[in-house]
Design a protein around this nucleic acid. Structure first.
Length: 445
RNA sequence: UCCGCAAUAGCUCAAUCGGCAGAGCAAUCGGCUGUUAACCGAUGGGUUCCUGGUUCGAGUCCAGGUUGCGGAGCCA
């Protein structure tokens, strides 16, 4: 009985007889010689079947294998530069092959497919090479997020997914029946984070969030994952310094661990290596001027229309794109108009029309990947803002009470996992960055 | 919700001016001892999204609808 190995560790077994268990990814039949491309989850390896080197019945089995048939194979590992795979350069000289189950009519071929077809077959699509690479990067992004926060004194404190609180924007909430009472799926854990921060100093929550926005763009999902750190005694400048360290650590972790995956995705990593502190910083006031200058220079009438912008309105994605393109690394845009941001953001001293908020825009048109602010810590000011915005203070009693018992200045932000993965992988759409995307028209598979 | 585009074989697409519905891949069969999305030969495979209209004749033109895609708004 030979040793069962995973393909990722094949380099340690050159010259040995090994067993690999997996699925047929592709097959090339040359008559008395066949090449089997086999994946086992950890990688892809080429197995070579010469007719004379394995039992006749096993060779016949090899000839009958269809794409995604499950198999157990045994053979000798040898280094060969001609062998493709991940990692490439090694192949298995087949001595024995056992079919577990044939795969009849597998829908996804090595040729191109359309988006709808692939999303309908997402439960199979996750087996494909590009998806394998993307979802491995996603796992590393999540691991890097947790490692960095855990290593820097942040405590993971989970926040509820079901809540009676509306959160930020009541129109975009999913309502569910909670024993006859209305409840909502969480859009953010932030309000709870602010309570937890007073207990643990630096906290974060990390989980799925739900937004019933009727958005149909490359940057939106109905269900997406967000990490939200919240820190006591942090002002806006502290927040930006923390964010640039944090985001850089995530990008560098992927670069370090996924050279192979980024190559599969044909990602140009030169822009990613530049993602190190400090990031660029620009105020909303200056960003508005910057957009106006860029708009002035463009000859494209369509672009001129899209870039139209008055002070006081929020940036749309065309604005964010041209702002981000003006810098060679991620850029913070801070001090947005108070009117376009959430009620709990601290107004700037002497200029209450702007607030201590900051969004981080990723380069290459990937848009906003974090959004955060310094929070209002004064009880009276917060109560005033609640009244101004017109939300029912009844529902926010506990949240308002936080400001009555040792309230301190504090800040926090949320980072969208899918947008971060899309940016790092260089993908055109976030739907491939989550195993089973929930979008406007998709709840299956 | 608004604007634009699309729907033809299992998949990706073609079909000239309105005139016999086609190719590649996949599948099946045959050939080949170094393939890299192998190649060569053969075979099978169609409610041209739906409903109605114009016409001698509609995949193609017209009306309505359905579904999907891209963008805007909104956001991470």
């Amino acid at each position: 009985m030979s040793k069962i190995i995973t393909i990722s560790e094949i380099a340690n077994h050159v010259g040995e007889e090994v067993t690999v268990r997996g699925w047929l990814y592709n097959r090339t039949d040359k008559g008395k010689l066949q090449f089997l491309s086999v994946r086992d989850g950890s990688g892809i390896v080429q197995a070579v079947a010469f007719k004379k080197e394995l039992p006749e019945s096993d060779f016949t089995v090899a000839q009958s294998l269809t794409q995604e048939a499950s198999i157990v194979m045994t053979g000798t590992v040898r280094a060969d530069d001609r062998a493709p795979g991940y990692p490439g350069g090694y192949e298995i000289g087949l001595k024995n092959l056992q079919l577990i189950q044939q795969s009849e009519g597998y829908p996804i071929s090595p040729k191109e497919h359309g988006v709808e077809f692939l999303m309908d077959n997402r439960h199979f699509w996750v087996r494909s090479l590009r998806q394998w690479a993307i979802l491995r990067v996603r796992a590393t992004v999540i691991r890097a997020i947790r490692n960095w926060l855990d290593d820097h004194g942040y405590l993971l404190v989970d926040t509820p997914i079901l809540s009676g609180l509306a959160g930020e924007n009541s129109t975009d909430l999913f309502e569910v029946d909670y024993f006859g009472e209305p409840a909502f799926l969480a859009q953010t854990g932030q309000l709870y984070n602010e309570a937890n921060m007073m207990s643990f100093g630096k906290v974060y929550c990390f989980g799925p969030t739900f937004r019933a926005e009727r958005s149909k763009t490359r940057r939106h999902l109905v269900e997406f994952w967000m990490v939200e750190p919240e820190m006591a005694f942090f002002n806006l400048e502290d927040l930006m310094e923390m964010e640039e360290q944090f985001v850089s650590a995530i990008v560098q972790a992927v670069l370090k661990n996924h050279e192979q995956e980024l190559k599969i995705l044909e990602r140009d990593t030169s822009r990613l290596t530049q993602v190190t502190p400090p990031f660029a910083r620009i105020s909303y006031d200056d960003a508005v001027k910057l957009v106006a200058e860029i708009r002035e220079k463009t000859d494209d009438p369509e672009q001129k229309e899209l870039l139209r912008l008055d002070w006081g309105t929020d940036f749309g994605s065309p604005h964010e794109t041209v702002i981000a393109e003006s810098f060679d690394r991620p850029v913070f845009v801070y001090h947005y108009p108070t009117a376009v941001k959430a009620f709990y953001m601290q107004p700037v001293a002497g200029r209450p029309e702007i607030c201590r908020s900051v969004d981080l825009l990723a380069p290459e048109g990937y848009g906003e990947i974090t959004g955060g602010s310094e929070r209002i810590h004064d009880a009276e000011l917060l109560a005033e803002r609640v009244k101004e915005v017109g939300i029912d203070p009844e529902n926010y009693t506990w949240y308002l009470d936080l400001r009555k018992f040792g309230s301190v200045p504090h800040s926090g932000f949320g980072l969208g996992v899918e947008r971060t993965v899309a940016w790092i992988c260089g993908l055109p759409h976030v739907r491939e960055t989550i195993p089973y995307a929930r979008t406007l028209n998709r709840l299956f598979p």
